[in-house]
C-alpha cells in the first residue's frame, strides 16, 4: 500500500508539514516494497488559488491510497481526495514521518 505524508523533508526523520495543500513535500511510502518516493511541492507557493485540489491531484498521480497529514485538507481538496479514493488521517502534528507512520499503525490518528 502507498501511504502519503505531508512533510518538510524527504526522509523518515523529516518533520511533518502541518499544511495539506501548501505542504513543502509529499513523501510516499510503499510499505510492501519498503520504498520511498518524494515530490517537491514548494512551487505551490506561487499559486494564489486552488492549492488543495492541485496537491490532491498529485497524490492521485502518485497512486497513494492513504494520506497522513496534520490539520487536514479543506473542502475542495477533500472532494478530490474522495474521488481519487484516498483515505485521509489527520492529527500527526509535531511528529517525524516515522512517528506519524507508527501512530497510523497504532490507530492513534483520526480518520478524516
Amino acid at each position: 500500500m502507498k501511504i502519503a505524508f505531508t512533510t518538510k523533508g524527504t526522509e523518515w526523520n523529516s518533520e511533518m508539514d502541518p499544511r495539506f495543500g501548501r505542504t513543502e513535500f509529499i513523501l510516499v511510502y510503499d510499505d510492501e516494497k519498503d520504498e520511498f518516493e518524494s515530490f517537491d511541492n514548494r512551487e505551490i507557493e506561487n499559486e494564489a488559488h486552488g492549492a488543495g485540489p492541485k496537491t490532491s491531484q498529485k497524490l492521485f498521480e502518485m497512486v497513494a491510497q492513504v494520506l497522513i497529514t496534520v490539520n487536514g485538507p479543506g473542502g475542495n481538496a477533500a472532494t478530490v481526495l474522495e474521488k481519487a479514493g484516498v483515505k485521509s488521517f489527520i492529527g500527526a502534528g509535531q511528529m517525524s514521518v516515522k512517528e506519524a507512520y507508527e501512530a497510523y499503525k497504532n490507530n492513534s490518528l483520526k480518520g478524516f
Partner: peptide
Amino acid sequence: NCNFHAVIQLGPQILVFPEL
C-alpha cells in the same frame, strides 16, 4: 489552462470547483 485549479482532471473524469 486554469490558473485557479478550478478544473481538475482525475483519471477519466473532470472535476469543476465552482467556488474557485
